[in-house]
Amino acid sequence: MANEILEKVNFSENVVKLIIRSPYIAKSRKAGHFVIIRADAAGERIPLTIAGSDPEQGTIMLVVQRVGVSSAKLCDMKVGDTILDIVGPLGEATKVHKVGTILACGGGVGVAPMLPIVEAFKKAGNRVVTILAARNKDLIILEDEMRLHSDELIIMTDDGSYGQKGLVTDGMKAVIQREKIDESIIIGPAIMMKFASLTTKEFNIPTQASLNTIMVDGTGMCGACRVSVGGQTKFVCVDGPEFDAHQVDFDEMIERLGAYKTQEKVAYEAHEHECKRKH
């Protein structure tokens, strides 16, 4: 059945990997594409970047982090459950080409959408240096898969519980000072992308960032996802999700991501309370 969850892996307490039957999207998606998902009839429409697919099996892979009601609903779904609505693939695909050496920086669950991009750049004949960054060891995901498609894999944790101790930018600087980087791609929490972008800007390295903003329809209709890029308003859903990171107004984006934080907090607490009551 379409939209059925076929496999579920708990990466950590709050991060899950879902393998979902979605034959059309499995076939048509490319690196960089995202889907819009509505878990159930009361759910909101949220964007999730596709982490991979198997066209033969007709499945797509998504990685979801529990941050609010909508993501919690997805995280709590079980194998055999069906997601009500999945539409995609949306957005413009990553422009993959051979440029030389790529520095790919993934933070937190941003590593998931980075996976197909790293894979594609490697396939295109580039040398790929990948940095995975997270707060601690438990939050490092997809390490083996990333290692498979990277020439070198560097792990950075804030607390030093795994790999090297330090921020993603520390790892980036070390690589950049060591070898010539032709292009960089960064995906992760907005604040991480802001500082990663400042780092590559310092060294004049062309950089793409994949943005994950609030969306409703995801097809260009609502404009909730608008960001300022080079002083112009762009829609992440149809013009992105990838943009020249050095042109993105990350401060504005961070504020806009918090547009509903009060409502989201109240709703999440109510949801958790309701879940506990049921169990």
Binding site: A42, E44, V216, D217, C222, G223, R256, Y260
Partner: peptide
């Protein structure tokens, strides 16, 4: 691009399609 400036498409879609004004639905509206 300040917060709480919406297109009419977004504002109406939240309320009409996503039922944002009803508490039993997850989509928020300001």
């Amino acid at each position: 691009n300040l917060i709480n400036i919406f297109s009419s498409n977004e504002y109406l879609t939240r309320v009409n399609l996503m039922n944002a004004a009803k508490s039993e639905f997850d989509t928020p509206v300001f």
